[in-house]
Structure formats: structure tokens, C-alpha cells
């Protein structure tokens, strides 16, 4: 340590030698790629204010006036209001079932390790590797047996089962990492198992809970395959199902209306992302690096 060379470059810029030219070229490439990501989301705005005739005549010109009719038509065709309500219901259901269940199981697996709980942990862990595609048919039949086909609980209950393994693993590693002293002190003061868990450990696990809530929400929000199987009647359609059925029913021929639908469909996610991108990225990374 004593022989550490004095560093002649400003700290914090400790990167390999980079010439100005390469930096400019690479920066330009990166900006172009970012534009390629954003462009499909921005281009619809060029089409959406035109009538069909105006679009066919001059698709790439500026719109002559701002017309909202395409938005209104697309909104009516998708009925996104109902879709949002259904989706929120599914998201809340999935969160309410997944997060507490995983927290409780993760706590036991972390703090009460016996042979039985270890076996059960592997039983849960194995579920993480089961692709949902594999069980679609029996799931559908099962929901028929339980009389929850074509209902929103019939969607978020299986979703929960497939979320539990991952979040149990995350909670387990989180609780394992927590210091033991606090719980010990409480135990000496006479607190029972339940008290220690609910009053002391669970509040300490707040970061994991925030992470789980956020990502379970995102998962339920974007789900398509399970919704497609489980939901049949149009009034129960979630957002993604409505968007898909708009695509199949109306197609791309009426481009201004399609553009309006694209904007309406993407807007909630994009707005959520703009507000919460820091947590979303951090959360995804924390999940991916641990899992």
C-alpha cells in the first residue's frame, strides 16, 4: 500500500485512454440507437391528427389541423378505461397475494432452518424453473374446477403461484442478511415469534417489499399469455388483451386510428416509466443480480 503510485489523472475518470475522435463517433452511434428506440413511439404523433384521406394523400407531411377524432374512435374501440380498471384489479390482486406469501415463506426459510424447511425450500425453489407454458392446459381445466374461469381472480391466482418462488428466494436472502441482534433483544424481552416477525423483521425488509411490489405490478401489468388463456369475455379483458384485439379487428389500414391506438396503449407504461425509471431499473438489476 505504501508503494502505491501517485495517480496523475483526475480521479473518477479512471477509464482507459480514449481519443476525442472515438468518443465522438461512439457517442454519435449511441445517440442514433437511442433515437431508434424512441422513434416508433414518436412517429405515431405525425399521423394521428390526420383524416384517413389526408393520410393517404400525404402521409409524411405535417397535419393541416389538430383533430382529436382518431383518439376518440380508438378510445371507443379499445375501451381502455375498463381495461385499465381490470388490469389494476389484477395487479393489486397479484401484489396482495404474492408479496405477503413470499415474505412469510422467505422469513421462515431464512430464520428457522431445519431439515423440513430446507426440503420445503427446494420444493419452492424448483418452481422457479417451471415455464408457465408447460401447465397452461391443466391450469385452464383447474380454473374450470374451481369455478374461476373467465374471472380476474382466475388470472391473478396462477400468476401469484408463478411469482412466489422468485420472491421467496429474494426475501430469504434478504432476511438472511439482516443482523440477528434486534430480534434477539426482542426475544429476551419476551416477544413471541409473530411479534418479532411483524413488528421487527418485516419493517426491516422494506426495501425487498418495495422491490417486490413494483416488479410484481409490472409483471401483472404486461402479462399477455395467461390473460389470453384465462379471460374469454370482452368485459373482463385486461389492457393488453384489448390492445391485441384492437390490432386484430381493425388492422393497420386506417393508419391514423391505429396510430392513435398505439399512443393510447403505450402512454400509461411510458408515463409510469418516466416517473419511476430509477426504481424500475434498480429493482430489475437487484432482482437479476441476486436471482
Amino acid at each position: 500500500m505504501r508503494n502505491q503510485p501517485t495517480i496523475s489523472v483526475p480521479l473518477g475518470r479512471a477509464y482507459p485512454v480514449r481519443s476525442k475522435l472515438t468518443e465522438i463517433v461512439v457517442t454519435a452511434i449511441l445517440i442514433l440507437l437511442a433515437l431508434a428506440v424512441i422513434l416508433p413511439l414518436v412517429l405515431p404523433f405525425l399521423f394521428v391528427f390526420k383524416t384517413r384521406l389526408e393520410y393517404n394523400y400525404n402521409p409524411w407531411g405535417w397535419p393541416t389541423e389538430i383533430r382529436w377524432i382518431n383518439f376518440i374512435e380508438a378510445w371507443r374501440a379499445i375501451r381502455i378505461g375498463e381495461g385499465l380498471l381490470n388490469t389494476f384489479y389484477v395487479c393489486l390482486g397479484a401484489i396482495a397475494c404474492t408479496v405477503p406469501t413470499a415474505a412469510m415463506a422467505g422469513y421462515i426459510f431464512a430464520r428457522y432452518r431445519t431439515k423440513v424447511t430446507e426440503v420445503l425450500f427446494y420444493f419452492v425453489l424448483a418452481g422457479y424453473f417451471v415455464p408457465v407454458q408447460m401447465v397452461l392446459i391443466p391450469l385452464y381445466q383447474l380454473c374450470g374446477l374451481l369455478n374461476i374461469t373467465d374471472t380476474l381472480p382466475g388470472l391473478f391466482l396462477p400468476m401469484t403461484a408463478f411469482g412466489i418462488p422468485f420472491w421467496t428466494i429474494i426475501y430469504r436472502s434478504f432476511f438472511t442478511g439482516l443482523p440477528n441482534e434486534l430480534a434477539e433483544a426482542a426475544r429476551i424481552d419476551g416477544a413471541g415469534h409473530a411479534n418479532i416477525f411483524f413488528r421487527i423483521m418485516l419493517p426491516l425488509a422494506k426495501p425487498a417489499t418495495v422491490l417486490a411490489t413494483l416488479l410484481v405490478f409490472m409483471g401483472a401489468w404486461s402479462d399477455y399469455l395467461l390473460s389470453l388463456i384465462m379471460i374469454n369475455s370482452a368485459k373482463n379483458y385486461t389492457m393488453q388483451l384489448r390492445i391485441a384485439s384492437f390490432m386484430n379487428q381493425y388492422g393497420v389500414d386506417h393508419m391514423p386510428r391505429y396510430a392513435a391506438a398505439t399512443i393510447i396503449a403505450a402512454a400509461p407504461t411510458v408515463i409510469l416509466y418516466i416517473i419511476g425509471h430509477r426504481w424500475i431499473i434498480q429493482g430489475t438489476l437487484a432482482g437479476a443480480l441476486k436471482g
Binding site: L33, A34, V37, I38, L41, M218, W221, S222, D223, Y224, M239, Q240, L241, I243, A244, M247, T262, A265, A266, T269, V270, Y273, H277, I280, I281, T284
Partner: peptide, 12 residues
């Protein structure tokens, strides 16, 4: 910006 495309649901 790059990650935005990943967040969009597959239907969109």
C-alpha cells in the same frame, strides 16, 4: 432510454 423498450408490454 434503452431500457424503455424492455418495459413496454409485449402486446404494445
Amino acid at each position: 432510454i434503452y431500457y424503455l423498450a424492455n418495459v413496454l408490454p409485449s402486446a404494445i
